[in-house]
Design a protein around this nucleic acid. Structure first.
Lengths: 215, 215, 215, 215
DNA sequence: GATGAATGAGTGTTCATTCAT
DNA sequence: TATGAATGAACACTCATTCAT
């Protein structure tokens, strides 16, 4: 019981803090500049510890990036599961899910940018992260349940694939964060403007509901 | 007429070919690996000429990237203007525009990936490319005209901002290319599959029309 | 007292040696070929360490050059202050200073060549080295004190500006090192020849004394 | 007489102008940046002709530099011989020579900087330029004649070597141009200031005369 | 004589990673 | 655990020079 290196020891707690601190900094850097653009030296400098610790805890740049990616996915899935949309009526549930999804993207641009970056790298790193794949099924299951209930109640039309619904919701939410900079330059619209954001949120809710609802 | 060194001389034509060849290769590399990930040496190697020529014609890596970016935008705008959607009835015109937009993204993943990369870099390079901004207004004008006609005919509901419409169309088309790799890993769906593509194309057309049409 | 990693640790001492070794080699190379002509690769090769270390310790070629320049100036000023000319009689003091100045230039051609090179570069680098300017005032103060004492004793004529005196001394000493090669070619005289050197040293002492002494 | 390529033809005159124009530009560039720092591309750009012509007329960078060096020496020797100092009384002649030498350096910093640069390169290029060596003897002969006359008249002391006299004059004149930038930084004196220049000119005349004159 | 296009060898610099203490 | 020192492979970029017309 008196081990100095047990799970609850002071040492291991400090170690966990160091790890978390590195992950925090690395997430910011990778999200900001991408995997190829981020610099290990710069990450280390912004950390409370040193470059050596990055290698000690994570092994290398790519492994650190994967740990960051995994944590980012964990967080969005945890949030999605925390909300209890199933208790709501189908239309209200979907409205809440779309709004929540839009908000999450908006408030977590690091997540969006990490996913963009991962696609730039042809998804080669996410493929090496165990445990991301499985967690995603619950989102689909959740949407499937709501769709079923809505169809049964006659408020949604049948034949909507829950994966397609998720794709539509994500696409509309994602774009408003991912393409912020080029859109601002090309059309002079600032996706980050609060007034615009509120308006766009409602538009997306309407577009998704309109597509799913029975006529 | 007998100029030996005019704009159409053999030499200058070869030079233009060299330039185009470099741009072709560079576009592929930048689209494939991003600005930070692409290597000048590798681009040069895949070229019919040499690394030195890249600097001769473009000045540096960033300038080459900007030239590639500019050309990619030129191409999509040229295609958009080539199609004569205005002669169609509003609903048919919109259906054609959405389908065309979806197809263009699908068939030009380099464009999508360049835009992704540009957003990764916070749009700092597109801001330095003169002549992209202006060209985009015609897309909005085109959509605006169709919306007006549709509202006048009572087939579209009033109050739709053509920029928002463009955002919705682009978001849905963009995502199916930009997030191809992470989506495949997370949900097992291959956006590039021809059968999926056809299904998704129609879904997007329906979603957009459903959002715009009067009820 | 039992610190294992203080300023005097073995590691940090080795690091200081590495730094000094790089400075030594770089001084020789920059003095030999100038800033533009010296090659980082060649400097690194002649070093006990590597090219990478040059960047680790100095940041770049220009910064290394500036560090070399600063050290060269530090050394000449330290030598000037070490000698205690003020205790001598004015004429003897001036004779000693001129001789010492001539000898220093002669025995430190790297210093002369670095200064030449710096003038080739319009003094742009010395302007960025903090701490050189201040140190020079002591030379002028020293000459001023000797001049004042000599004037008071009636052995020097009044009205000599110590800065002008320093200019005259330096000019005569500098030229015999700086213009060694062109002079040898143009007039067949080898400034480095020991017999010539001794003769020239005395000439310069005489010329300076003759200019300063009362008649 | 009617040859189209004779020495006086229009073609050859244009060729000579092209050559001179290249030499003018090259002298400015080499004087400004040194041999290693000057760029063939930049020289060509500032020329009325092209890079190809530099190679056509001079063969390469080093040969161009040597041609520039040769012309610079030709000019100073021509000026020295143009002035008829021998007709003056010894003291006046020497005074005139020193003043003239000082002025020439002052008004021709390109010459001073080319000589500096040549010494940076250990005089390896001047050694390859035929015809510079010989021309220098006349300067020494001129000084020797004046010294002899002065000694005979009892105004100069005997035993002064004309080469040493030339060295002293040159050293004092050279320094005020060559070390302009470092001196300004180190002591805050601007050698190029007109008031300073006039004062310094007289000082140098006095110092040289004082050294040579009998007491 | 004249021009733009092309080239290979080099030149300063940066990167992720490992070592010694 | 922790730190500064060290490394080699790669990277973007430049230069004097030559070729084809």
């Amino acid at each position: 019981m008196a081990t100095t290196r047990g799970a609850g020891s002071k040492r291991s707690q400090e170690a966990a803090e160091t790890r978390e601190n590195i992950l925090d900094v690395a997430m910011r850097e990778f999200a900001d500049k991408g995997l190829a653009g981020a610099r290990i030296d710069e990450i280390a400098e912004k950390t409370n510890s040193s470059k050596r610790m990055i290698y000690y805890y994570f092994g290398g740049k790519d492994e650190l990036y994967r740990a960051v990616l995994e944590r980012a996915y964990e967080r969005i899935r945890r949030q999605e599961q925390a909300a209890q949309f199933e208790t709501l009526e189908p239309v209200e549930a979907l409205r809440a899910i779309v709004g929540h999804n839009f908000d999450y993207h908006f408030e977590h641009p690091e997540f969006v940018r990490l996913v963009m970056n991962e696609n730039v790298h042809h998804g080669e790193h996410i493929a090496q992260v165990a445990g991301i794949k499985g967690r995603n099924q619950s989102v689909i299951a959740q949407l499937g349940a709501i769709l079923d209930k809505g169809v049964a109640k006659g408020v949604f039309r049948p034949g909507i694939d829950p994966v397609d619904l998720h794709t539509t919701i994500s696409a509309l939410s994602f774009y408003n964060v991912s393409n912020r900079h080029t859109f601002l330059h090309n059309f002079g619209i600032d996706f980050a403007d609060p007034a615009y954001r509120a308006k766009r949120r409602e538009q997306i809710v309407q577009a998704v509901l309109g597509w799913v609802q029975a006529r």
